[in-house]
Nucleic acid binder design. Structure first.
Length: 1123
RNA sequence: GGGCACGUGGCGGAAUUGGUAUACGCGCAGGACUCAGAAUCCUGUCCCGCAAGGGUUGGAGGUUCAAAUCCUCUCGUGCCCACCA
């Protein structure tokens, strides 16, 4: 009987309605089943709608989740919308519609497109990041971060996109340009909220090892985090200073801290004066300032320091000076006698107004420290001090609150001008011939620089530059020397110059480097341009890693001074080389340096002994190269320290050579090009590069030279020993920067903060959340660094939650990444008004078992992992990682091989494809296109294959019989096994091909048993849910096939009675034999020898060797020559 | 410049992880059905050779009884990072 074609449109409609009506995909928490949480990266609902590339990941999770459900698990497969962000806002600006209107329209469109494909989403859990009921919790997380000290305000220069008119996180840049609009970003100083993701860097890195993620994604994350181990080393500034230390109202010059400071400063040759100040508990300005002034004389080399009330006295003293001093350092200072923990009457006889201009004029630099845990002086007080003096107060961690410890290294560091550098190569410190500070370096404002105007101009110019200009390829190094200041290299004790240059980045390490031009490309380039000394301190060292001569691990080395002599021909452009007779070596002349010899005389002697030439002229000693190898005849590891000596022969005059020397090797005259191929040891290749001038600067590890007590030590050891020896310390640094969290735009979550003049930044009380986004007239960013929200006075002006006084709301919004950093938790409990997620539900569903997505994943994943770890720390999440397994998808390109885009007019809408070919054919085609992670171009021609397969299955219903077809037993068992395994492994393409193979087998038999048919439909159900539901019903199956139990198979059907074993002779196939799987080697051999072809290939002889892999292969190795 | 992948027919790709290379599908060619086309079905389809046979996984070496798979070098492509000290 002829069957109608499959009417996909009708079948899809019928079943999609029924699934929806019966709610078969709703996820429940109380079924007692094992759970499975399958998640797609939720989309941004753009105005363009879906193209055929978008559903690829959704189809995969759909298949996977349907399979999980049929395996008896309780499945959570939700969908939602990441709808805040710039595109919606820009669209709103263009069309003058509210972004919410556009977003709602887009969501409706996306939903209808998705519905047509027949997904098993639980729509009752749909969420939307722009819904106040959702972003209430995004704001809640922000307040929790603030509460735990992980959010703070900063005024550091940040990346500013002049086109989007907003600040951006480091992660939002693409090689120095805004990733959205490709405009070069500039540095701009704006008050910003910043999240301290750096506090989690180490855990974000370490926990990667526990994740079942593709290796390249983990690698990208490691790259972002960018951990590097190195050393922080202090380079003291040259020159002797006189320090005048003024104690506070609880201090005395006899306190241990002052003894400690005196000892440390005097040890460096400085002078220390600690005057006793009278009556500090009832301050009297005149008396105290007079005491300070009387204690000593003041000049350019004087640095005045004050602690607590002493800081105030120091300011007053500086104000009254008639000469200029080197600098003013304040710790725990204040400008207003009001304290956190006590009240004290300081008003008597003290003038609390300061002449900041006078102080600034009198002091070379001013530096103020504030302890983050100070009990007396609030942050706000410290800020006021900073404002009064026109400086930024540096917040540090004191040993004891308010710097009351016995030793306070932060004070010492602030007093004693040093430049702290970060380096991963402390082994090169003896070659550090200058220092470089980044233009942002805070020390630049404090140093007594003679050419201050020039330096300031350079710093200003650097700030103006875009990232691109600053780091463009072919960049020319620029910089300015700081005249009048020098640093001391703590290893060599030599004075070295200091530069400011923008090739050093302010945000990484300490913002300062020691420059080693001999062993760093960038430093070398800079040194060449500025005529700075280049000092070699690392000699190249090579280890032999191949036999013969591979180093014997753990055995000691004997050391030998040696030479490698490069000898030029007297007339040709060729060089003398030795071809060794007993080993496969090609070398230059080489040998040891005996006592009393110099490298030059040793090289000449070696040349005479080995080849006989006597008329050599010494030209050059290139330096030393070290070769580590195992000396086979001497049975020892050897490290040969070889001077590379260049000789030129003046004539062919030569002597007789001893017979034993001549027997060892043949001399050859080779050109440079020939030598490149001929020389076997790496050390000799290195020598050749020196000769040809091809050896660039050496940046690798090696052996230290000219490095005092560390000379001849190897880099790896020196890296461990040098930092401590020069007073530095090993530290770990990360490339990842803190997350700039403020956006000066409208369409985002308002940051729930109220700024009060009196109380500073006050968090909005939890019970007042959410802070709803108000309606505005215009969405345009102001461009001044203020969000459009700032233009709504009735929203901005509020009462301070703490004091009730007048206050203003924070008008910046959060970045788009905020809402997507925790949405997977909300799906577990999407309508809860009391809490972010109910602990019971979280415990049941977490973590996400399989997470599928592609684009932007590195950033999203790092932010989400950061927030998740924080939520874990405060007890909201029960595990420390959100996504157990991650599958990365490859994109679908347009037929022309380009990206699918409205711009190119090559977009294919899934609606059209579904209408023409059906949802099931569309799903099968997308999964059959290739491996899931591959990027492949769409092909309308190829989708026909999927359509044909659907039609074939449809027709196959006509072949169903009551009785099982025995010949299909094994193929069906194999198919059940493979399809199940492949779905779990995300290998959908091979699962489909296995089902096609089975369909071919059914057609060959022209029959299939009813039970076999129904099992086959179940295998196909996750891929083609509509077709199989229809056929399942026709065959008498109970609704729904998607809630039926995944078929099992009899493993015995997989174990065939006989297997084909391929017979090879000498690795080439000569036939095959049928054997029982348990056949012995003897049986297999006997069967194989029956074959004529096998006998012929063996030449009538018995095989010399037999390799038998039961069930697979029998390889016979013949006796013939060559085997 | 650094890191990570990858390279198999005309095309997408498969190969139980070292054991019959090219499964499955697209395309193409020939045939059947048809007045004709669409659709469908059958046959063929890596290269050389009439055949027996030989060759072939970007290229060159190596390890192994056996290599697409492991190692070394080399060429090419893609992705990520990039003045990160």
């Amino acid at each position: 009987m002829a069957r109608e074609r499959f009417d996909h449109a009708k079948v899809e409609r019928v079943w999609q309605e029924r699934w929806e009506k019966e709610g078969i995909y709703a996820a429940k928490e109380d079924t007692g089943k094992q759970k499975s949480y399958v998640l797609d990266m939720f989309p941004y609902p753009s105005g363009e709608g879906l193209h055929v590339g978008h559903p690829k990941g959704y189809i995969a999770t759909d298949i996977y989740s349907r399979h999980e459900r049929m395996k008896g698990k309780e499945v959570l497969h939700p969908m939602g919308w990441d709808a805040f962000g710039l595109p919606a806002e820009n669209y709103a600006i263009k069309t003058k519609t509210h972004p919410r209107v556009a977003v709602e329209k887009n969501i409706a469109n996306f939903k209808s497109q998705l519905a047509k494909i027949g997904f098993d989403y639980d729509w009752s859990r749909e969420i939307n990041t722009t819904d106040p009921a959702y972003y209430k919790w995004t704001q809640w997380i922000f307040l929790k971060l603030l509460e735990h000290g992980l959010a703070h305000q900063s005024e550091e220069p940040i990346n500013w996109c002049p086109s989007c008119m907003t600040g951006l996180a480091n992660e939002d840049l693409d090689g120095g340009v805004c990733e959205r609009c490709s405009t070069p970003v500039v540095k701009k100083k704006l008050p910003q909220w910043v999240l301290k993701i750096t506090d989690y860097a180490d855990r974000l890195l370490k926990d990667l090892d526990t994740l079942d993620w593709p290796e390249h994604v983990k690698e990208s994350q490691r790259n972002w985090i960018g951990r590097s181990e190195g050393a922080e080393i202090d380079f003291p500034l040259a020159g002797k200073y006189k320090f005048v230390l003024l104690h506070g109202f609880t201090g005395k010059p006899s306190d241990p801290l002052y003894g400690w400071l005196r000892k440390n400063l005097e040890a460096r040759g400085h002078e220390v004066v600690i005057p006793e100040l009278p009556a500090t508990d009832a301050p009297n300005e005149e008396e105290q300032v007079a005491a300070a002034l009387a204690a000593t004389s003041f000049d350019e080399r004087t640095i005045l320091y004050g602690h607590s009330l002493g800081a105030v006295v120091a300011m007053k003293t500086a104000e009254k000076l008639r000469t200029r001093i080197g600098g003013l350092v304040l710790a725990g200072g204040f400008v207003d006698p009001k304290f956190k923990d006590h009240a004290r009457n300081f008003e008597n006889k003290f003038e609390w107004r300061f002449d900041a201009a006078k102080i600034r004029a009198n002091c070379g630099f001013i530096c103020a420290l504030q302890d983050v845990n100070d009990v007396a002086v609030s942050e706000e007080q410290a800020d006021r001090l900073g404002k009064a003096l026109g400086i930024t107060v540096k917040r540090v961690q004191a040993e004891e609150p308010h710097f009351d410890g016995r030793e306070e290294p932060e004070i010492l560091r602030a007093l004693q001008p040093t430049v702290q550098v970060f380096t991963t190569r402390p082994d090169t410190i003896y070659g550090a011939t200058y220092l470089v500070l980044a233009p942002e370096h805070e020390l630049l404002a404090r140093l007594p620089i003679e050419n201050a105007a020039e330096v300031r101009a350079y710093i200003a110019a650097a700030a103006q530059k875009t990232e691109i200009e600053r780091s463009a390829e072919g960049r020319e190094k620029t910089g300015v020397e700081l005249k009048g200041v020098k640093a001391i290299n703590p290893a060599t004790k030599e004075e070295i110059p200091i530069y400011v240059a923008d090739y050093v980045l302010g945000g990484y390490g300490t913002g300062a480097i020691m420059a080693v031009p001999a062993h760093d490309e960038r430093d070398h380039e800079f040194a060449q341009k500025f005529g700075l000394p280049i000092k070699q301190v690392i000699e190249p060292t090579y280890e032999q890693t191949t036999e013969p001569g591979r180093i014997r691990e753990g055995e000691p080395f004997d050391h030998r001074e040696a030479i490698i002599a490069i000898v030029k021909h007297w007339s040709d452009d060729t060089y003398l080389a030795l071809k060794w007779k007993e080993v496969a070596w090609g070398t230059f002349i080489t040998g040891g340096i005996e006592e009393g010899q110099t490298p030059e005389t040793a090289a000449k002697a070696e040349l005479r002994e080995e080849i006989g030439y006597t008329d050599a002229r010494f030209v050059k000693d290139f330096g030393v190269v070290h070769g580590k190898f195992y000396h086979v005849p001497k049975k020892t590891n050897r490290n040969a320290h070889a001077h590379v000596v260049y000789l030129e022969l003046a004539s062919d005059e030569r002597e007789q050579v001893a017979a034993d020397e001549a027997a060892k090797h043949d001399p050859l005259w080779l050109t440079a090009a020939e030598l490149k191929k001929f020389l076997t040891p790496d050390t000799h290749q290195h020598a050749l590069r020196w000769l040809l001038g091809e050896q660039g600067i050496y940046t690798g590890f090696g052996t230290l030279a000219d490095s005092g007590p560390f000379t001849r030590m190897e880099s790896t050891e020196a890296i461990e020993k040098i930092p401590e020896a020069v007073g530095g310390r090993m530290v770990v640094r990360y490339k990842i920067r803190d997350w700039v969290f403020s956006r000066q735009r409208y369409w985002g979550e308002p940051i729930p903060i109220i700024h009060c003049e009196k109380d500073g930044a006050v968090p909005v009380p939890y019970e007042d959340l959410p802070v709803k986004l108000p309606e505005v007239e215009h969405y345009e960013p102001s461009g001044t660094g203020e969000s459009p929200l700032a233009a709504i006075p009735e929203w901005v002006n509020v009462k301070c939650p703490t004091c009730g006084g007048p206050a203003k709301r924070e008008t910046n919004t959060m970045p788009q990444w905020a809402g997507s950093s925790w949405y997977y938790l909300r799906f577990m409990d999407p309508r809860d008004e009391e809490q972010l997620v109910a602990p019971k539900k979280e415990k049941y569903w977490a973590p996400v078992d399989v997470y599928v997505g592609g684009d932007h994943a590195v950033r999203h994943l790092i932010y989400a992992r950061f927030w998740h770890k924080f939520l874990y720390d405060i007890g909201i999440a029960s595990g420390s990682e959100p996504f157990k397994r991650l599958e990365f998808l490859g994109f679908i390109l347009a037929e022309d091989g380009r990206k699918m885009s409205k711009r190119f007019g090559n977009v294919i809408n899934p609606d059209d494809v579904v209408a023409q070919f059906g949802a099931d054919a569309f799903r099968i085609y997308e999964m059959f296109m290739g491996p899931f992670e591959n990027t492949v171009a769409w092909s309308t021609a190829s989708i026909k294959g999927a359509e044909r397969f659907v039609e074939r299955v449809w027709k196959m219903a006509g072949l169903v019989e009551d009785e099982a077809v025995p010949a299909l037993g094994t193929p069906l068992a194999e198919t059940i096994k493979k399809v199940g395994e492949d779905i779990e492994a995300f290998k959908f393409n091979t699962a489909i091909s296995q089902m096609m193979i089975f369909a071919n087998a059914v057609e060959k038999e022209s029959a299939i048993g009813k039970d076999q048919w129904m099992q086959f439909l179940q295998l196909l159900a996750p891929f083609a849910p509509h077709l199989t539901e229809e056929l399942w019903g026709e065959a008498g199956g109970e609704f729904s096939i998607h809630t039926s139990t995944w078929p099992s198979y009899d493993p015995e059907l997989l174990a065939k009675a006989e297997v084909e074993v391929v017979v090879q002779v000498a690795g080439k196939k000569r036939g095959s034999i049928m054997l029982s799987p348990g056949a012995t080697e003897a049986q297999a051999l006997a069967a194989a020898m029956q074959s004529e072809a096998v006998g012929k290939a063996l030449g009538g002889e018995e095989p010399a060797k037999v390799v038998y892999v039961p069930g697979r292969i029998l390889n016979l190795v013949p006796r013939k020559a060559g085997y």
